[in-house]
Amino acid sequence: MDVNTRQTQAAGTLSPEIGPQRQPLNNKTTDRFWGYFFIFPQFVGLLCFSLLPLIMAFVLSLMKWDGFGERSFVGLDNFISQFKDEEFRIAIVNTLYYTLLTVPTGILLALLVAIGLNRVRGKVIYRLIYFMPNITMSVAVAVVFMWLFNADFGLINLYLKEWFGIKGPMWLTDTRFVMPSIAMLSIWMGLGGNMVLFLAGLQGISASYYEASQIDGASKWQQLRHITIPLISPTTFFVTIMSIIGSFQVFDQSFVMTSGGPAKASYTIVFHIYETAFVDFTFGKSTAAAVILFLIILSLTLVQMGISKRWVHYED
């Protein structure tokens, strides 16, 4: 009996259980069903709590409404009144100033801390310590910093006087120092979150790049400039976008610490939206200001995404 005949007989004696399993014909349909099943709750939440309120905000921005009576359509009058409103212009200028103070400084400090932590042992412990302010309630942090910035008995002015013989400024009551004071609080709170992102990006860089550069005689500065910074550019891009969005939405700090003062020096866009809605009860104008803020953030994000191709490098 030849080999082919024996293989044929052996194959015929195999039981159906040993043979190849048949794949059900509706596998794709079943996978698609479970996919839609699991995304359905999130889709409903997105629709009810994000998309519909966004659409209603655009509709309400075209109406005059005090929150109680009937609504009346006014077209673009709310937007025109906002651009003519001096307080709205002050809020935009203050918010831009706050963004310029917090975003570059916060990103640079977070990057430096991440680079330092990436070179030491015990990264988990240090990462936890640095990240704790990021999950602390902003109102509680603002109250603590109000005490630190107090001109009469605050710890900052106390140490400035005892250690350096300098009389500290009126941090929260001086128009020159109030926004930098709020910016310092925000930088301290956001440092841990940005640091964790940068640290993850640094740990994702292959060590072979640094080994090859050391063989070529590259210095630490050259490694930082030509390897580290380009390879973490996607992380830098994400951190920049999120930091700018967060800086334009600042509210808690100025509301708790200064109530927008002194002399509107810490009066931000979101504070203006709140005051227009819940103090003046002009919800149409308040929603128009919110729509303008949305368009500003959207425009800045699109611009950053457009120019990101010039400096964001993705590892192959």
Rank of each mutant, 00 (worst) to 15 (best):
V103M: 12
P104Y: 05
I307E: 04
E275V: 01
A207V: 04
R176Y: 03
W163D: 03
Q21R: 15
G246S: 11
N194E: 04
R176D: 13
R310M: 08
D77C: 01
L160I: 02
D77I: 07
K161L: 06
L14F: 04
F73Y: 15
S213I: 11
T105F: 12
P20E: 09
I297D: 01
V74I: 12
G306N: 15
Y159W: 03
N118C: 09
F177E: 03
S299D: 01
G284N: 11
I90Q: 13
N94W: 05
V250E: 09
F88G: 06
I215R: 04
A263N: 15
F294H: 05
N78A: 10
Q23L: 12
D85R: 06
L117C: 00
V103S: 11
M137S: 06
N27Q: 15
Q23T: 13
G168C: 10
T5I: 10
A140L: 12
E275L: 02
F83L: 12
F49R: 12
Q304M: 15
W65D: 06
P16W: 08
E17P: 01
I135G: 00
S233E: 13
T29I: 15
S61C: 04
L295W: 04
S254E: 14
R121Y: 13
D77T: 08
G19A: 11
G260D: 04
I269R: 01
N157W: 06
K64P: 06
D77K: 14
R32V: 09
Q21N: 08
L112I: 14
S15P: 02
V120D: 03
F49C: 13
D280M: 10
A200F: 03
P169Q: 05
H226W: 05
A263Q: 14
S61D: 04
F271E: 01
T240P: 07
G284A: 14
T30C: 07
M1R: 14
Q223W: 00
F33T: 09
T5R: 14
V144H: 00
P20C: 07
L25G: 02
T105K: 04
E315Q: 14
S243A: 15
Q7T: 14
S213R: 05
P16Q: 05
I125V: 09
G306C: 05
K28I: 01
L293N: 11
D252M: 05
L25S: 07
Y98F: 15
V59M: 06
F255C: 00
W163H: 00
A10Q: 14
V139Y: 11
L295H: 01
L298H: 01
T30L: 15
I90T: 15
Y126R: 04
M184F: 15
N118T: 13
F198I: 07
W163E: 05
G69T: 07
I215S: 03
Q222M: 02
R225W: 13
D85Y: 00
E86P: 08
A288T: 10
D2E: 14
V113H: 12
L295M: 12
F131L: 10
I135F: 00
V312S: 14
P262H: 13
M305P: 06
F283V: 01
F33S: 08
A142R: 00
M1W: 15
Y130L: 15
P180W: 02
P169S: 06
N150G: 01
L155G: 03
E211G: 03
